[in-house]
């Protein structure tokens, strides 16, 4: 007997695939921002599904700060080769050579150079008119207000007070030359949905999401990994801590959470009972009030 029930995950999947296809059908030079994290993994799988049996018909773009974790680079190179995608990596060399780093500049300026400006440079260089991002509305309160098709002016800026109304599944894809659209196919997914989908679809993710004993330093109540050359402060001692990463970013600014969840089902169980949102481990979100909104206005995802 035929069954016409559709589960939440399959509904979200159908919506995301519709969005991915709409962009490819209406824009000339789309690109997918690939950040190596779990949301990117899910977004890439959705792109594989949307265009199967063809290949993903647009390049992936990694805006690399040069300060990601080793395990992220290893995973990226291996995974991209395995799925046969076209990956472009952009590093803002000029800024790095001028000494951009969070210790000297502070996190706000460091992000402004290595992430926001780097992203804008990369998009301009590639003359991309639409860029997919893996941001979800449940992550952060200004993202909750953003459209799935988010219009950006010629400088990549977001104007939250002047957004196009978005009705039904009818996306307004019209832009003038120089303007662009940021598209968020995972807008309606939650962190739990992402993990349930990873579980259901057996999607590979960076091993750092799974708990194991790692060399860490405890700083202002946060767990900072000693993955790169993190300068230790006085009285700070490295310790072995059983922990995992809920989100992945740059090693100086990404904290871990103590956890023993070493498999996807264990992570799912942990998230169902957890008390803090995932972005609490991202130092950069807490720099200043409305810091995400500010970054988005300036051109960040």
């Amino acid at each position: 007997m035929e069954n016409y029930r559709i589960s939440k995950l399959r509904l979200l999947e159908a919506e995301s695939i519709h969005i991915l296809r709409e962009v490819v059908a209406t824009f000339e030079r789309p690109v997918m921002l690939y950040s190596v994290g779990k949301d990117s993994s899910v977004m890439v799988r959705l792109a594989q599904k949307a265009f199967f049996p063809g290949k993903i018909p647009f390049p992936l773009l990694h805006v690399d700060t040069g300060m990601k974790f080793k395990e992220m680079y290893e995973f990226r190179d291996c995974y991209i080769q395995q799925i046969g995608a076209d990956l472009r990596v952009y590093i803002y060399r000029e800024a790095l050579e001028n000494g951009a780093n969070p210790w000297d500049l502070g996190t706000v300026k460091c992000c402004a150079f290595l992430k926001t400006q780097a992203l804008l440079n990369a998009l301009k260089e590639g003359r991309y008119d639409a860029a997919f991002g893996g941001a979800r509305r449940d992550e952060e309160k200004s993202r909750a207000k953003e459209r799935i098709f988010s219009f950006r002016d010629e400088h990549g800026q977001w104007d939250p007070k002047n957004q196009r109304p978005e009705l039904w599944g009818l996306y307004n894809t019209l832009v003038n030359k120089g303007e662009s659209i940021r598209v968020f196919p995972l807008s309606n997914w939650t962190e739990l949905d992402v993990w349930e989908y990873i579980h259901l679809e057996r999607i590979p993710v960076v091993p750092m999401y799974f708990a194991k004993e790692r060399d860490m330093v405890v700083r202002e109540g946060r767990l900072i990994p000693l993955d790169g050359p993190v300068p230790l402060k006085e009285n700070e001692k490295p310790q072995k801590i059983l922990c995992r990463f809920r989100t992945l970013g740059c090693y100086p600014c990404t904290g871990a959470v103590t956890s023993s969840a070493a498999t996807v089902p264990e992570i799912i169980r942990e998230i169902m009972t957890v008390k803090n949102s995932e972005r609490i481990t991202r130092l950069i979100d807490h720099d200043q009030d409305s810091s995400m909104e500010q970054k988005k206005k300036e051109g960040y995802f």
Partner: peptide, 11 residues
């Protein structure tokens, strides 16, 4: 249990 939940939950 988790798999059943993911497959069954409605929106």
């Amino acid at each position: 249990l988790i798999l059943t939940r993911s497959e069954d939950a409605e929106l």
